[in-house]
Write a protein that binds this DNA or RNA. Sequence first.
DNA 1: CTGCACTATGAATCGCTAA
DNA 2: GTTAGCGATTCATAGTGCA
Lengths: 261, 261
Amino acid sequence: MIFTSPPYADSRKDTYGGIHPDEYVNWFLPITKELFRVLKPTGTFVLNIKERVVESERHTYVIELILNMREQGWLWTEELIWHKKNSHPGKWPNRFRDAWERLLQFNKAKQFNMYQEEVMVPVGKWATTRLKNLSKTDKVRDPSRVGSGFGKNVSNWVGREMVYPTNVLHMATETGNKNHSAVFPEALPEWFIKLFTREGDWVLDPFMGSGTTNKVAQRIGRNSIGIEILSEYFDVAKNRIDKKQLMLFEKKGKYETNQTK
Amino acid sequence: MIFTSPPYADSRKDTYGGIHPDEYVNWFLPITKELFRVLKPTGTFVLNIKERVVESERHTYVIELILNMREQGWLWTEELIWHKKNSHPGKWPNRFRDAWERLLQFNKAKQFNMYQEEVMVPVGKWATTRLKNLSKTDKVRDPSRVGSGFGKNVSNWVGREMVYPTNVLHMATETGNKNHSAVFPEALPEWFIKLFTREGDWVLDPFMGSGTTNKVAQRIGRNSIGIEILSEYFDVAKNRIDKKQLMLFEKKGKYETNQTK
DNA sequence: CTGCACTATGAATCGCTAA
DNA sequence: GTTAGCGATTCATAGTGCA
């Protein structure tokens, strides 16, 4: 799988060079093309992104990116929401605090690897009271009154302690650490790595930053690759990841590089 | 303001005729053009919508609609999230339960009416413990470590009981009632009506359905207009809205109509 | 009047089978 | 070969009724 949180348009000018929102799509598409090339057919690409406000409007580069990636062959399977429970406070005259980001799920084929049992969550408190005494209809399949075809057999739920999650993830941002300005919590890549890979599988983060994705991958027994253009971040990542795993990073040799800002 | 939840593409085949996802944008654009015409310059249009899954992919009609509406002159000011706490259960091999919908905010100008104090929420429990003992840095403006220009003065929060909300709304869908298949909770239009209008202002719902928006508008002292093509829904709405308010609905006369399914 | 027990149902999606 | 129809699956909430 590929999990990444690329530099947001213009928002990290001091650290990453800052891509202008209007140029963002054209800057990113050559990269997604390579990601499409290297991802296995059963793999998944999860892109954590959010559009900036430009001149009082949400900029359209994210939704344009989706449309263009579909032209490259990507399937836009799903969009999950990361609800940032402890988002920055603040007050603006025309909007409220931005407390969510997109987690765009792309695939190469309709059939892909997904291990839903790995991310189950505890059932809600309602279950303890609801399932204490079952009525007669609770013990058989009870079809919906509106004829939707929906039905339920409540007795199937007795003893169940874990249920499947929804496509809304509630996670707090991590605070107070790292020399890296775009910090997502470890729980975020961990959730997707567990969901879309098994032990020994490979995880790629093409915008490694301080290496959170790779650190998590290492901790839960996945192989991983990180790519990072800035040596400051690379140094941070090196200190966070087990040394014996760094062979690929440390490879010697000269490389041809394009000129970049 | 305009608040509406149009028929979702194809999803209510039995009740609304069902617009095919591929035709959805072309079907909706003439309507948004008229909405643009009638909305005041300081007004706001809030569109509650979510894309269907078509052949294992999220369909692109919503994001295409955003792009096309901007061509009409609309500003895409913000996208808020409605987190549906009690979303439909269900299990699928390739996705989880869909627990959120989009609330797209469009405006005609950068300056619009917004009454943020009307939707403040109680401060979280963190305040009672966090503010009990203030450190030295808590009492002055403490700039962000990442150089974002953000700063905070914690002592400003002492004694505050209400705070501004975020752009993520947590509300349960309404259950067990109504002869209308697409029920959003009254709290949803209520939040936006309070935020974007004052008493006596006008609220329009061009897809009235069972009249939830109009009922709420009436309860909190706003004038409202609802438009509904199906007489069954109109009858439901009539029973939910105070009779003396129905003059506009009851207007006599024959109308020219286009042929519709 | 409060609390508890119980019931109904909500913008769903996938895959198989029959037409 | 394509499409339409149907069965299977599964949480959390609000409302009602009764003690």
